[in-house]
Amino acid sequence: MTQSSFNQELQKREGFRSELCAAQAIAVRIWRVELSYPLSVLWFIAMPFVWLIPMLLTGNAVSGGPESVNLETLTGTSDWVSYVAIGTAVLGLTMSLMWGTANAFRREQNAGTLETLMTTPIKKGTLIWGALLHNIQHGGLGVVLQLVGSMLLFGVSLNIWGILPALAIIALMVIGMQGIVLTLVCVVLLAKQGWMVIEFLASGLTLLAPMAYPLAVFPPIIQYIATASPLTWSVDAFRNFLIFGLAGPAANQAVAALLILDTIYLLIGMVLFKRTEKYVRSKGALTQF
C-alpha cells in the first residue's frame, strides 16, 4: 500500500465498528503491559483475597460463627460470610473503573504516547472507552475470581438463577459508573494530578455502597445520599440476585433506579468530557504535566 492510498484509507475510517476495534486494541495493549510485570499478575490474583480476608476475620471475631442474628433482622439473611463475600466482589471492579479509566489520559501522558494517540484518526473518547473495556475485563475477572474463591474456600453458595440478572446489574453499574468516571477524566485533564479527587470519590462511593453492611446502619440522611449513587443500587441488587435468585427483594426498583441514574450520570459525564476536552485543547494544555 502506497503512502497516499494509506492516507486515503485513514480518511475513510469511520463508524462504530472502527472505534470498537481501536478500543479493543487499546484494551489489549494495556493487558500486554500489565502481564509483562509478574508482580502485577500476582497482585491481580491475590488482591480480591487480601481485601476480603481481613473483613472475614473481623466479622468472625464479632459473630463467632457463620450466622448473624442482627444481620438477619436487617437484611433477611443470616449468612454474613456470603453477604460480605458477594457484596465486596464488586470492589475490585469499582476500583479498576475509577482509577484505571479516569487515569487513562494521564497514563498515556506519563508514557509519552498521548500526543501520538491524539493524532491518530480515532475519536477522542475512544481512548477512554478502550481503557474502560480493559478495566471491565480486568475488574470482571477479579469479580469471578473472588466469587469462585469464596465458594471454594469459605463455603459461599450462589443461586444459579440469579447469575444472569446479576450480570445485567453489573452492566447497568458500569454504565452509571462510566458517567462518574468521565467527570473524573475532566478533573484529571484540568488538574493533571487528580488522584486526590479520585481517591476521595472512590472511597466515598465504596463507603456509601452497602458492600459489607446494609444501608440501615447509616443515619437516615446518609441513607438518602447513598441512593444517589449507582454503586449503592448495583451492589444491593447484585448480591440479592446471587443470594435469593429471581425472588430477590426490590429487584424491579433497583433496575428502574439504575436506568434513571445511568441516564443522568452518563449524559452529564459525556457533556462535561466534550466541553473539557475542547477547553483543554483550546488552551493547548492537553499534554502539559
Binding site: M55, G59, F218
Partner: peptide
C-alpha cells in the same frame, strides 16, 4: 466500612 460491618453483624 470495618466498623459499620461489625455493627451490622454484631449489633
Amino acid at each position: 466500612p470495618y466498623v459499620l460491618m461489625m455493627v451490622a453483624i454484631g449489633g
